[in-house]
Design a protein around this nucleic acid. Structure first.
Lengths: 340, 340
DNA sequence: TATTTTAGCTAAACCGATTTAGCTGATTTT
DNA sequence: AAAATCAGCTAAATCGGTTTAGCTAAAATA
């Protein structure tokens, strides 16, 4: 049952394992190994069904050909689609992926980064949950390759790919104002200190102010990640039983939007008649919901591909220079913000 | 920038790396290392911010504490939810996960298994795309730990966790017949030879026959994974322009159901008035679609947890005995099969 | 013929941990 | 005082590759 090693091949052929290694890495010609010997090595390798041990190789070369991907929750469809793009892009360069979810816990994220580094991943693609950039600064200081995706600290001179959350949010808000909304409520997923959430809130708030709407913090309800449904219930209670219900709700995350919609169904709150509903993160289901949901779509394919390109360049290219890529979103207007 | 190794700690303290290794693995007491020395080691490790190299450890111990997860497509919400449960369950035992998608390609699956074994994962959780059990039999012969999840070969004496697809499908079909459907069309995702698809087809076909409905292969449309939308278009063309349109459609996969629904919207085919629509794999969005979709729900949490338990037992426990766990599904009846 | 070159190959170090077998000097037992 | 025990520690092998430096015998050159 023991797996076949280079040594086994070498011994059974009466050659050195150096030679076997060179041949199987296609360095035979370069090192002047005769065609005849090369043939024998390949044949024996096939006969014994040799598979190299990547651990041993990685230990020696210092390259594991593995990347880490850290997101809040891989079962969130936004991240799983992103993960798939990243998996494929990484695969093209012969890298594989260890995927981890933080559950929006900053502490867990730090543990995961530590674990991934202990596993000698060559780099990490990270949608951070950190409140401040301290830990990522340490990564930078250690010259450890990583890319910020989706969420990021602008002050870090690090590779970044994200969307213009401010602009996307402002566009959506403008749309709501254009169709007559005067009181926009925000459902923000905790932790709300992330760049993504802050920018989305700012985009909405500024646009409201610019257009002469009242704005204060009261418009924002924070939904704890650990109990989305319960928190949504509370938010709705608060809004709809105190007589200051918003005429439009802007959910900053697809999960929350769904939960809000479910709650409205239960309570017979009509969308869009009683309240307009909109969300960040367009997903394919939004089009088929009742009512179909107006949403801000993110170019997740581009994001995924770019992040891998940047990361691999930063791993393999000594003179890699960091880049910040900010992509545009697209507003998809649907029935949840249209009366007719 | 070099990372700190055991040797660095050992040298800087003037002790052997054996000692350092023992202390940091909490084997100090057991090996009679004095408290004073242990204290010094821990302190130095903290001071130098030592992180063990998992590759080196794994190479030596023969345990990588890594599992492989192979599914058709991690961006499919069914698999991403499963993956999340598996990630958490594995994490509790200090295992991490390399996640891979096969795109329903049998060849790619074989490559992925090879790759995962080369990476020395300790075991694999696999939703197979293979047509015949040949390759999995090889895994068994090599005594390599793996668990079949969702899709499986019944003839393999291997750990398996899945649902009773036949029963779930039969239940759903019975429901359709009960509400008056006489001509049920199946949308099957290719490859249709998987256990899952075969059982779902059989459950539907047998139930139709038992209830006196006509049945032949014409009722089944195969949808190629690589072009779901295009294939759905063709299927609809064929059904609805040839005058032998089904009065109910049973989609064997959540992706296909969504695509079918989208196509119906475009063509103004009314659900459920013109055609009832049902699907396997209940997902949270189904409840909010218009119309909400009748579906067969799978206990994915249980599936994920059980699969990890079984796999880890089979890795760590010499006298592990294989188990086959077949769970029940739950029929969720919603508006897409109700006229009123 | 003596020397250099070359083709073809190998020995040994190395990556960073774990693990086995055993050493050293002090203390206890006989 | 010699032998046995014990506390506390270490040297070296090992996992399976890659890589460096260099060997050997035959062929080519001087």
């Amino acid at each position: 049952m023991k797996r076949i090693s280079l040594n086994d091949i070498a011994k059974s052929l009466g050659v050195s394992k150096t030679l076997v290694s060179m041949v199987l890495n296609n360095l035979g010609d370069q090192n002047g190994i005769s065609q005849k010997t090369q043939g024998k090595v390949w044949e024996k390798a096939r006969e014994l069904n040799y598979q190299p041990n990547y651990l041993a190789r990685s230990l020696r070369t210092g390259r594991s050909k593995t990347l880490g991907l850290i997101v809040a929750d891989i079962s969130n469809i936004f991240y799983s689609r992103l993960a798939r793009v990243i998996e494929d892009a990484a695969g093209k360069h012969n890298y594989n992926l260890i995927i981890c979810s933080t559950d929006e816990k900053a502490e867990k994220e730090i543990e995961l980064i530590k674990m991934l580094r202990a596993r000698q991943v060559d780099g990490i693609i990270l949608s951070t949950t950190q409140k401040d950039p301290k830990h990522l600064q340490e990564l930078m200081k250690a010259k450890f390759p990583f890319v910020q995706i989706d969420r990021f600290f602008d002050e870090l001179k690090a590779d970044t790919v994200a969307v213009d959350n401010y602009k996307g949010s402002a566009q959506l808000t403008k749309h709501l104002i254009d169709i007559g909304c005067r009181n926009i409520g925000i459902l923000a997923i905790s932790p709300i200190y992330t760049s993504v959430i802050q920018q989305r809130i700012a985009g909405c708030a500024e646009t409201c102010k610019e257009n002469g709407l009242d704005w204060d913090e009261q418009h924002i309800k924070t939904i704890e990640f650990a109990d989305i449904d319960g928190n949504i219930e509370k938010a709705i209670d608060d809004w709809f039983s105190n007589g200051n219900a918003p005429d439009a709700v802007f959910s900053l995350n697809n999960r929350i939007a769904i939960s809000f919609m479910q709650a409205c169904k239960k309570r017979n709150i009509q969308i869009p008649e009683q309240v307009k509903l909109t969300s960040f993160d367009d997903i394919e289901y939004f089009e088929l919901l009742w009512p179909p949901m107006t949403a801000v779509a993110q170019p997740f394919r581009q994001m995924g591909q770019k992040s891998v390109e940047m990361l691999i360049d930063s791993i393999e290219n000594k003179k890699h220079e960091y880049q910040k890529i900010i992509l545009d979103t697209e507003l998809k207007i649907r029935k949840s913000t249209q009366l007719k």
